[in-house]
Each structure stands twice: as C-alpha cells, then as structure tokens.
Amino acid sequence: MTDGMLDRDGAMLSYEVQEGEGPTVVQLHGLSSSRASEAAAGFFDWSPVHDAGGRLVRYDARGHGRSTGRAEPGDWAWPRLADDLFALLDAVAPGEAVDAIGVSMGVGTLLHAATREPARFRRLVLVIPPTAWATRPAQGDVYRQMADLVETQGYDALVRAMSAFGTLPLLEAGGWTVAPPPDIDPAILPAVFRGAGSTDLPAPEAIATLRLPVLLRPWAGDPGHPVATSERLHELIPGSVLEVMSTPDDLRALPERTAGFLR
C-alpha cells in the first residue's frame, strides 16, 4: 500500500493506494468520518473490493482524519469537495474512468462530480445517501445547531450530545456499538458543520442525465439518511438498482455486494 499527500487550496489531502490489476476504485467516507473511523466502527469494510482485484484508492476528505483544512465553511460544500476528488483522480488515475463508492457526504461529492464530468466514472455505489432537496433544510438546521454547540460549550459537549441520540437500531441489532467521535480538528469543526448545512445534491434534472450503472444501498430507520432520497435517485437514474438494508445481515453483505457490482 502506498500513502500520499495531495496539496490543495487550503488543505492537504491524505490518501492511500492499494494496487490491483483491475480498474481503479475510489472510496469516499461520510461527514465527520475518516478511513480510521470506518475501521473503528467496523460496518463499512471495503477490503473485498481490493481482494476482488480492484485498485483501491481511499482518502480522508479535507479537514477529516489525517487531512488538513481551514475554518472556511465554503470548503465543505459538496461541489468544492468534488473539486478535491477531481484533483485526486488527476494525481492517481489520470485519464482513467474510475469506479467510485460514496458514503453519505461521499454520495453528495460523487453526484456533483458525476453530473459535471460523467465520462470520468464507470460505475457508482451510493451508500446511505443523505437528506436532499425538501429534507435538506431541516438537516442544515441540525448542523448549524451542532456548530453553535461546539463554539459555545466545546467539543466534549458535542460528543455528549451525539451520544445521547443512541445507536441506530439496525447497527445496535448487529452488535455495532462503537460510535467514533467526529474525526475533525475541533478548531474547524463549526465551519465543517456550517458548510455541510449549506449544501445539497445537484438538481434532479441534472441527476437524471446520468447514464452509468448505479447501485443504491440506503439503510432503514435513519432520518439523517432517509430511504426516500434513494428512492428518488432510483427514479431519476435510468437502470439504477435500489437495495434497502433493513437487517444486520443486509449490512454485512454490503462489502461483497459492492465488490460484485463493481466486477
């Protein structure tokens, strides 16, 4: 495995490349997560993608994990994160159309990137797509309240508040009880949340222009990632496949299902 750092405006992106004989697959995590957080939580394991022969590229979004960032809310608008993704692809897979896996915030990044430059992608796996369009303003309010909490009461108060929400029933039923705290420098955390609260998926008419294989894998019971978003994406993207994860076994099957779809 090769580790690297990519210099971006206002950030240094930390990434890793696991070489393979197949096409490049890039994986994008969710808001406040990171490669390390996904490993700690345990329910998003992308090793089967590499085991199946894919050349797996994973990175920490700006300000997350081992990547750096600045306290500028606009840096976390999804079109801006799509710019980062294109820069990474220019560095690690120049001229290649790639497969891509996005989780939550990663879905937003991918859809902005794919609607702008569809020729750069072969297939997409969209895992737990977030609130969008009509449901986005209320989620934006939540993020702004979280930003205010960090600024007025500190990072530990946010962690306590997030813990009070409890574990998603699907995760608890499967024995996934680890809830990693936000893997973001507390000094920029309010800006990250405010940026997330101000952004949205591309317009439905833009998404409807996509013509590539897409697998949608939402999970049930999470208002921050409503199944309704995936249902609407399924309606908009011709030929897309929608598979709702309703049980722990559905979630356990996600890594192999992803690898099979990308094969």
Rank of each mutant, 00 (worst) to 15 (best):
L210H: 02
S14D: 14
G65N: 05
S230M: 02
R66G: 05
P226F: 01
H64N: 06
A208G: 02
S34L: 12
R55C: 00
E205W: 00
E117H: 14
L31D: 08
V127Q: 12
G10Y: 01
V103K: 12
V241Y: 13
P23Y: 07
F44S: 08
V178S: 11
G69W: 03
H64A: 03
D7M: 14
H234C: 02
W219P: 01
D75E: 13
R136L: 09
A208P: 00
V98N: 02
P118C: 05
V214T: 06
R136I: 04
G197L: 06
A179G: 13
V25Y: 12
A100E: 00
R58E: 08
A52Q: 03
L215D: 01
L158F: 09
Q18H: 15
E21A: 14
D83L: 00
P169Q: 07
G174N: 07
V241T: 15
L189Q: 12
A253I: 07
F86T: 08
I184E: 08
R211N: 08
A100T: 02
T135Q: 10
E205K: 03
A61S: 14
P180S: 09
T2E: 15
T115I: 10
G63T: 05
S32P: 04
A191G: 09
S33L: 13
G22P: 09
S240A: 12
G69N: 05
L81C: 04
R252Y: 09
A40C: 11
Q139K: 13
A191S: 13
A164K: 14
A36G: 12
S14G: 13
E96S: 08
A113N: 02
G53I: 02
D200Q: 05
D249N: 14
G4F: 01
H234S: 02
G95P: 00
G95C: 02
V125S: 06
R232F: 05
F44H: 12
R120D: 04
G69M: 06
L236M: 04
R120M: 07
E231Q: 15
A41S: 13
R232H: 11
A113H: 02
Y59M: 08
D185S: 10
